[in-house]
Design a protein around this nucleic acid. Structure first.
Lengths: 229, 229
DNA sequence: GTGATCAAGTGATTTAGTCACTTTCATGAC
DNA sequence: GTCATGAAAGTGACTAAATCACTTGATCAC
């Protein structure tokens, strides 16, 4: 069986993606109005809307009421965070740190061997602004880790770290609440940055491991008030 | 600004997720019909459909024409693959292997230290069936790596590996096409399995690294016919 | 110039209805 | 009794035509 024809709106969603690609539209650009899309693909507006909703869920497009449909960052992304993420538990927070502990040290080492000038500059900027308070859900302190992954030169690793950190923003808030030693955090970031700039992969790896271990330990030591939902 | 009220269907999507949670529905269970949902939440069916499409995009639900709406695996997932993934390039394939090279060795070490009996059994089963041909897009050979991540005991790591492997199934097909030494693949899997079962984290880590390095090298050596699109 | 106002364009939602698919269960043949 | 047939009920898929609400930009008064 060829799996038959997919749902109409699913097919349409793919067509719209193809349209975006063929017109080389990037994030921020406006897409055709849903009425025009309906005419173009010979379907009705509700069908177009279903397709757009589907694309909106993965960040490919963004629908702004009264303004238009805009291209989002999701098109070039391979792995993304689930918008309907599960609830927070104590173990999920620790699980997250443990996962990062497995992934990020290797990334730091890779970044040290890559030593891309532009990426290092952004990494330095991220470290510098890490002490600023979060705005609009954007957390400068976490951005350091994303930029570190970006400095590895591997976009997939960057997306992975980004997804992990973005996935459970609320967990991260929790972490920040429990482990709120920003000065130490910042100091450790600077150490990692220095090691990466020196091209010392082993040191970068070790420092990142220690950095995350510190966070994990302080989390395991902390007792969560809402551990039992 | 409090960001106002989100789109109606967005609110509805969250309500449906909450409904699923409150009724403890798991994958495979049927959800209320869209007509009933419309009545329950006092909206019309197209609005319900938009919300369901949104949820469908992230795998939370699955709509089967003529049958009903079923709960999917996406609810408990934190990180997932983008269904509208970018096109394949040569560099993206190598990027994928490189990312796995950073992530998976640490996972193997963690699995060796965890040594969960049930997980190891599934891992062994995955290794045994790895030589079978893929069916319905399910690739037994790749499943070993997913089960290995599962054996680490960290669900987030499992999801991450799963996403990475699922993300670019076509790239993986490409890999299999270029590096089609299944016997060797299988043998290396068995070595990793043995090291994990022995609790030898260092060996498991080293063997996984070598395993992926072998694949990477054979990929870098191969010249892609469709490198220039 | 500056500011308010209005109109056009857009997405958001409703309402009502038709079509297509799947499941089920009663009917009937064997 | 067992199994196939087939109609019916329930479901999602889609259409059609409107109306509402929001954004934007141009227009116009000051």
């Amino acid at each position: 069986m060829t799996q038959g024809r997919a749902s109409f709106s699913e097919q349409l969603a793919d067509d719209i993606v193809q349209l975006i690609r063929s017109e080389s539209l990037g994030p921020g650009d406006v897409l055709e109005s849903s009425r025009d899309l309906a005419k173009r693909f010979a379907v009705t507006t509700p069908t177009v809307r279903e397709a757009l909703r589907r694309l909106e869920a993965t960040g490919v497009v963004e629908l702004r009421h009264g303004s238009g449909t805009y291209i989002g960052p999701g098109l070039e992304r391979s792995v993304l965070a689930n918008p309907h993420r599960p609830h927070i538990t104590r173990s999920s927070v620790i699980e997250l740190v443990q996962a990062r502990l497995v992934i990020e040290p290797g990334i730091a080492a890779l970044a040290a061997s890559a030593r891309d000038a532009a990426a290092l500059q952004r990494l330095e900027a991220a470290a510098a602004t890490a002490l600023q308070p979060p705005v609009h859900g954007f957390r400068p302190a976490l951005n350091f880790h994303v930029e570190l992954a970006a400095a590895s030169g591997n976009g997939l690793l960057r997306e992975t770290v980004e997804a992990l950190l973005h996935v459970r923003a609320s967990e991260q808030t929790e972490i920040r609440f429990r482990y709120d030693d920003r000065q130490r955090d910042h100091a450790e970031h600077l150490e990692i940055l220095a090691a990466v700039c020196d091209g010392d992969g082993a040191a970068a790896e070790r420092l990142t491991r220690e950095h995350l271990s510190t966070i994990r330990e302080s989390l395991e030591a902390a007792d969560f008030g809402e551990a039992a939902p």
